[in-house]
Amino acid sequence: MDLFLQQLINGVIIGSTYAVVAIGFALVFTVLRVINFAHPEIFMTGMFAGLLAGSHISDNFFVVLIFGAIGAGAVGLTLERFVLRPLRGRDVLMTLIGTLGVAIMLQNGMAKFMSPDPVAYPKSLQVSLLLSDDIILTSTQAVNFIVSILLLAGVSFYVRKTRYGRATRAIAERPDVAAAFGVDVNRVSQVTVALASVMAGIAAVSVGILYGSAWAFVGLFYGLKAFICMLVAGNRYFEGVILVAMMLGVIEALVTGYVSSNFRDVAAFTILICVLYFRPNGLFGSYDT
């Protein structure tokens, strides 16, 4: 029972990060009609930006988060301006190759300039919290979770209650009509990529603090799972993506706890294949493209 509770907590926490990365994928996909394969690497860049700020500028928690956001946001904006925008309206294969190229550059560039192995994060924030004798919730886990939940709440508010957020949903559903009613699609695309990147950067820093390290190849891990979440949920309802991400985190944690961590990814892909077989548009539906 305690193992169950422990894995439930672990699962929800990792799921909340999957959710942030998945929402980033979904935001960019629905507005720009592009699968941004560089998104997980923007996440990774944010993680290193936080690390560098933490070891060279200040190990204040908020400073580190802000630098994670700035680092990831800068990469996202550059990507939008120099890769996504010039390729808008071209063949999907071109944007696929373009974003994949940027992903490989970021990944290997970071491995070359920093290290191909995990690099230690400043340790000053790591304290463990004992919920009971058997269940451990570390403060870094709590931080990771709270940061993710705040980001998700923020983006939910953005798309439902703000003018630009509404435009985001309007473009997702009918890009032509949105443009004809005064929405500057380039501008909204830029804001969307920036937002997705900043969210990823902040979440990445909290993950870096959680695991005590940044790693050039961390994007593969989170990116793949987040991508699965978006496909399983469908891109229509962000709340659906969040729910699926949390559930995937929990299922993975339970599989790890009760079966073996070797089967964790098998579980994720089995779910993906089953859902797409029966509901190709995802559990909660997707926008037409």
Partner: peptide, 19 residues
């Protein structure tokens, strides 16, 4: 018509006045 089917009536009208 091409309304935004996933947006509320009110939000459709707000988008009409986006500028």
């Amino acid at each position: 018509r091409q309304l935004w089917g996933t947006l509320t009536v009110y939000d459709n009208l707000r988008m009409g006045g986006f500028i």
